[in-house]
Design a protein around this nucleic acid. Sequence first.
DNA 1: CGATGCTGGGTAAGCGCTTACATTCCGAGC
DNA 2: GCTCGGAATGTAAGCGCTTACCCAGCATCG
Lengths: 385, 385
Amino acid sequence: MQAQTATEMTPDADPADPVVPADPVVPADPTEGRRRRPRAGRPGQHPVTIAEVAARAGVSIATVSRVLTNRKPVRPETRRRVLEAVDELDYVPSGPARALAGSPTGMLGLLMTDLTQPFYTELAHAIESEAQARGYTLILANGAGDSGREAAYLDLLAQRRVDGILVASRGVTTRHIDWLRRAPVEVVLVTCEAPGVPLPAIVAASHDGAALAADHVLGLGHRRIGEIVGPAVSASSPERHAGVVEALARAGIPERDLAVVACDGDVAGGRTAAEALLARTPRPTAILCYNDLVAVGAIHAIAAAGLSCPGDVSVVGFDDIPIASMVSPALTTVAQAVGEMARWAVDRILAQIAANRGEGAIEPPEVVRKPCRLVIRGSTAAPPA
Amino acid sequence: MQAQTATEMTPDADPADPVVPADPVVPADPTEGRRRRPRAGRPGQHPVTIAEVAARAGVSIATVSRVLTNRKPVRPETRRRVLEAVDELDYVPSGPARALAGSPTGMLGLLMTDLTQPFYTELAHAIESEAQARGYTLILANGAGDSGREAAYLDLLAQRRVDGILVASRGVTTRHIDWLRRAPVEVVLVTCEAPGVPLPAIVAASHDGAALAADHVLGLGHRRIGEIVGPAVSASSPERHAGVVEALARAGIPERDLAVVACDGDVAGGRTAAEALLARTPRPTAILCYNDLVAVGAIHAIAAAGLSCPGDVSVVGFDDIPIASMVSPALTTVAQAVGEMARWAVDRILAQIAANRGEGAIEPPEVVRKPCRLVIRGSTAAPPA
DNA sequence: CGATGCTGGGTAAGCGCTTACATTCCGAGC
DNA sequence: GCTCGGAATGTAAGCGCTTACCCAGCATCG
């Protein structure tokens, strides 16, 4: 309280933004012992606690807490003294202690199936932005395609007492279902659904998106169409397939005229699948792909077969990942509204969390299907004469 | 303890993997009140505490803690009872409480400059894997290129009481330096250095890597070489440039014969820069790029100019991101050892954390330079005759 | 002029753990 | 038979916060 005098005598600086003299590496003036930071805060050290701040400011710890949490009125003068002490001591409140005392942790868990997939990378980034914009921190949990690992991560997130979990798993398995049903925290699904569990979810309208792609090539005049579907674990793959079949049917093309090959959702798989498709007679003039990576593989296969894309064969991807616009020809693809899905998911989970604390009503779980958008680039054209 | 009787009377199931009847949404048998989980654990609920587990197992909370932390000997029979209670109650220990009581949080912060850059995405993924393999959870902190935001995130990570922070910022600014100098937790730098702050760091040997690229095109016979350097904020850009200059000098080519253009590190920037380079007379026959995205842009520019890559102009990228092998021609590029850098960084920070707790010696901070590897693909060839 | 209401701030009770220290229970050694 | 020692367990003291509750001080009002 004695050190504070100096500051009180110079009420020039705005208390909200106290200018702390940049403590030089070597103390400039050894006699000036008052204003040195008592604890340098190096790793080993015991961190500054609220009690030390209170002592320094000459108030009780309750008052410090009130200033920091901004929940109760505090006299401006008192507030100033507290903030000053906070600043002088480099005080950083302990998240764990706060959480234990009843505050929310301000952390959200993000469980992903496979961070190596560019689409999920984009989604993760979008969610991180949204979460950060709302003052929440993300814990990254990457299952790497292993559903056992995902289950373990769910437990871990619960242990960390995250306020909510966003699940962006490609395939929600029974292992998840059981956990999610009795989840101890709020859960919102992104890009996936958990059949039978009443959880809010947002997914792309894959069915209609795939139909968009099919309609596009049909409109260009293609009649012999091939489709490369995704792996069995993917929940959206059958949906997309159904959309394609339906669009073809509307154009009077029976399902048996659609050449279908399955593959893993990567470039190599796409290439192999496309090779199989190109070997068929009659050869398809357009290939609709499960995702953009597969489409890139298809383009490689077309080039390797001595054919031209889009001259001989058109290709349509799905997702519109950054790579889509970089390859040549640039991919015509179906874009998912990643940003909007991320925003919805974060908004929704925060609403649930708030509702849980008694603020706001609990809305019934719902599944939102976000429409997709066709992005036409260079990989599609009219079929060869 | 009375509820437990049912279980004790039927010692058929392995206590390690008890088959819990899938609690139906509507209780099937209202009379069967014994074996139902006392707390469903739905979001609102107060979570199960160690005291409840202790009561159920008929032991003190200390014993439960000992079983769970595995730090003190416990009689096998007692351990069994405790684990059984844990399982029956769906007990999940509280991370915050543990942290407050002195345990490490098991969390690591990962501060990145820009998650949208594919290279950083890869790095983040690699670090996540390493951290997870060692039982640590990652908190994602994406600065999105804004150094103010990064600084705010550093405070936030400190508040969360992470055990350590990995900084993978492209440019460590003075704002960081000041914070890092008095960081309250362990910090290891990945892919960057903080001049003047004694912190361990691992970076790619950019200088030598760039020289590798230059030597490669020189070996192919190129003499008129262009270079697209990165943005000013990038610390590695000048290093790479120096490597190129040095390699050229060894081959007897003076620095003034090297055509240099700067750009932002993305596709559009690379394209613009390459256009400028291609407009020069004499036109360079090889372009060394700051990174793979820039190289992709350069390839686009070459195609747009009616030239062929590698026929007329060779292109070399840097980083070997996944995209590099997908474009055509596939990119010749300099690969950074992302996985190894991630492993080293995580190993190192865990070592520091252990040392802090008195286990193991504190090694002096060091800067490791990981060699790069040249990956030759289709974008480089001998210069036109 | 004393009762009343209100406001800012202090006191202390937890939050759910870990762990130092105390206690109990044994068998071994005298 | 009694003490001693060690292993297993219980007891309780925090860890750093938030917050319910209480109290002092002051202005207002009858």
